[in-house]
């Protein structure tokens, strides 16, 4: 497997650049890890380098990948004069630096908020609301899943088939009881109280699953850095 180093010079294939980049990346990784012992100037230095480099990288990238090809070149070389409108709106954003003229930036922000709200509404309606409500209208008993359970050989296949049989009833119970939990027009007593308590259990299980996945994600980041240090830098693993 090729090293995962995203280091200066690596892309050009230059050996010196790659080695230097690996050492710089390793030093910065250890500098960040030093925070685990306690806050210190080396950590602060690495943090400031990261923020500075990231900001500079994004500015350059946006300039060359967005501003020049999408606006400047079509406007100046291509004669697409309609682009004066977004250019002017973009310039208006910089009026926020002046308190007296800051109100002008609202025009650009309004255009952005309006367009993205439009996209978000369409996406939420088409992709979430309608599709998810339709997907929730399922039979309690799935004959296909039951047939798969009967045909399962055993081991993991059997477990997955069993889960498939339980999926529909659990989905329906979880959906209904969780909705009951968020039904605030009546006091949660009696049958409603019991249903909402079951809903809380479903919510807790989903929070637990989310937290477990978050732990897994953070551990993956640690493993990625350790893999880099042990393979690319120290060469302990291949």
């Amino acid at each position: 497997m090729r090293p995962l180093t995203i280091a200066a010079g690596a892309a050009s294939g230059g050996l010196d650049g790659h080695v230097l980049g690996t050492w710089v990346a390793a030093a910065l990784t250890l500098a960040i890890f030093s925070f685990l012992y306690k806050d210190n100037p080396v950590y602060k230095l690495a943090e400031h380098i990261f923020i500075g480099v990231s900001a500079g990288y994004v500015v350059c990238l946006e300039y060359w990948n967005v501003f020049v090809p999408n606006l400047w070149n079509p406007l100046v070389s291509g004669g697409e004069f309609i682009l004066v409108v977004p250019f002017a709106l973009g310039l208006l954003l910089f009026t926020r630096f002046s308190p007296r003229a800051a109100w002008l930036s609202r025009w650009a922000i309004a255009a952005m908020v309006g367009s993205y709200a439009g996209f978000a509404v369409i996406g939420a309606l088409q992709g979430d609301l309608i599709a998810q409500v339709r997907a929730a209208m399922i039979p309690v008993y799935s004959a296909d899943a039951a047939a798969s359970l009967g045909a399962a050989a055993g081991g993991n296949d059997y477990v997955f088939a069993l889960l498939a049989v339980l999926q529909n009833p659990l989905t329906i119970i979880g959906l209904v009881t969780t909705l009951f939990y968020f039904f605030f027009s009546r006091e949660h007593r009696g049958g409603l109280g019991m249903a909402s308590r079951v809903g809380i259990w479903f919510l807790m299980i989903s929070f637990g699953a989310s937290f477990g996945y978050t732990v897994m994600s953070r551990v993956s980041l640690l493993i990625g850095r350790l893999h880099f240090l042990l393979s690319d830098w120290l060469g302990v693993i291949r």
Partner: peptide
């Protein structure tokens, strides 16, 4: 999924970070 899979009827699949995983599973069921 929201903008393309449903609207243009193009199959979408892929990979996400573990943090985002639970949020995406309902799209498999649907």
């Amino acid at each position: 999924v929201q903008q393309i899979a449903t609207r243009f009827d193009i199959p979408v699949g892929g990979g996400v970070t573990a943090v985002s995983g639970p949020e995406m599973y309902p799209y498999i069921q649907s």
